[in-house]
Amino acid sequence: MAASGYGKQSAPGQAPRSQDDFAHLPVREAYIAAYIDRLPDGAAVDIKTLAKQMPAYGQQAVATALNKLSAVGHLRRFRETLGEGRTQWVSRTHFSRTPRDDAWWERFLSGDTATDATPAPVAMPASPRPLHSPAYSALIALGRACPQLALSAAECADLEDLAAQWLERGVTPADFVRILTTGLPKVIHSPGAFTRKRLIAKVPPEPLHSVRPEAPPSRRVMECTGCGLPGRPEALSGGLCRACHGEPPTADRTVPVGEDVHALVSRLRLLARTRQPMAPR
């Protein structure tokens, strides 16, 4: 097992195990994938540890196999904090026996842990529909609280939209009744017309829209399966950087084309902070 907080993590929403889970892979990759799949969460899955457990394959072979498993979507490596308010960064290998594409792993990185599996619909007993809307019921309550404002069914239906505006603006049914029945004249000749006038005249203001708090900074970043370099998901196709993909370097790597230099510096600072001696992954 890896040190606490490190090691293998099973991805959500995987299909049940079957003998054909890794039939699409070459023999070496299929063997290593099946071995990792059966390890418990928290197990060390770094290159050295896997090579020790599988004498048939050396460290170089294991490293190459892990890169290929990453490229076809079976695993990604993330660097993340141990929890809310924690500053220690750990490296975890998230493994899925069901291969995922880059878009799925990017959603998972952002915190979307919804599974791909669609649960079978469960028949639920039909619950009785309410006879009236909350606004309609609030209008009925006026007559119960004050007989002078007893409304007919037609009047309640006619005033329902106006009453709904009150409830949508945060007024509770109890406050609705209290406000509309306070300070009434001794004689009300037309409860419907009187209530309409009062609903319009005393409608409360719309609530202020609260400012949405800024999203907290991400506590998880993807890193290249091959070399461990952190980067944006779109820059790590198949979980691998350009170099680990075997692509030739660009003519000028000091100022990447189309990339914000400030963003690059931020990532390098993150790398410097998180590049510290870590337990096996």
Results as ranks from 00 to 15, higher is better:
147 P>I: 05
11 A>K: 04
79 R>P: 08
50 L>H: 06
123 A>D: 07
258 G>D: 00
209 H>R: 13
49 T>C: 05
182 T>I: 01
72 V>W: 01
278 M>T: 15
270 L>G: 06
18 S>H: 09
82 L>A: 12
155 E>K: 03
108 F>W: 10
35 Y>M: 01
151 L>H: 01
69 L>K: 05
107 R>K: 13
86 R>S: 12
254 T>L: 11
21 D>H: 06
276 Q>R: 15
94 H>Y: 15
271 L>M: 15
242 R>F: 03
87 T>H: 08
234 E>K: 08
146 C>A: 15
199 L>E: 07
176 F>G: 03
63 A>C: 01
28 R>D: 04
256 P>W: 10
214 E>T: 12
190 S>W: 02
253 R>V: 13
34 A>P: 02
199 L>Q: 13
46 D>S: 15
101 D>A: 06
124 M>H: 07
23 A>Y: 00
243 A>T: 09
142 L>H: 12
194 F>V: 06
58 G>S: 11
180 L>E: 03
231 G>E: 07
55 P>E: 08
236 L>A: 09
228 G>N: 14
6 Y>A: 09
135 A>H: 05
231 G>K: 10
71 A>N: 05
278 M>R: 15
69 L>Q: 05
44 A>W: 10
97 R>F: 00
117 A>K: 07
160 E>Q: 12
187 V>Q: 05
131 L>N: 14
122 V>M: 01
215 A>Q: 08
144 R>S: 04
267 R>H: 04
239 G>K: 03
167 L>K: 09
192 G>S: 10
14 Q>E: 13
126 A>W: 09
135 A>N: 01
166 W>L: 04
174 A>Y: 03
236 L>Y: 04
279 A>N: 13
148 Q>Y: 02
187 V>T: 04
239 G>Y: 00
73 G>D: 14
272 A>Y: 14
233 P>F: 14
265 V>R: 15
157 A>D: 14
193 A>Q: 11
183 G>R: 10
178 R>H: 12
270 L>Q: 10
201 A>M: 13
238 G>M: 08
53 Q>K: 02
150 A>E: 13
122 V>F: 00
238 G>F: 02
40 P>H: 06
145 A>W: 10
267 R>N: 04
146 C>R: 12
39 L>A: 01
59 Q>R: 09
162 L>Q: 10
115 T>L: 01
180 L>D: 06
180 L>S: 10
274 T>F: 13
33 A>E: 02
182 T>W: 00
144 R>E: 15
81 T>V: 09
185 P>N: 09
3 A>V: 11
175 D>E: 14
33 A>N: 05
276 Q>Y: 07
246 G>A: 04
239 G>W: 09
100 R>F: 11
115 T>Q: 05
128 P>H: 09
8 K>G: 10
257 V>M: 11
207 P>H: 02
281 R>A: 10
116 D>P: 01
173 P>L: 07
126 A>G: 00
182 T>G: 08
30 A>S: 13
198 R>W: 04
82 L>Q: 12
104 W>V: 03
193 A>G: 01
177 V>H: 13
64 T>F: 00
242 R>T: 06
82 L>N: 11
123 A>L: 13
40 P>W: 02
95 F>A: 07
139 L>C: 11
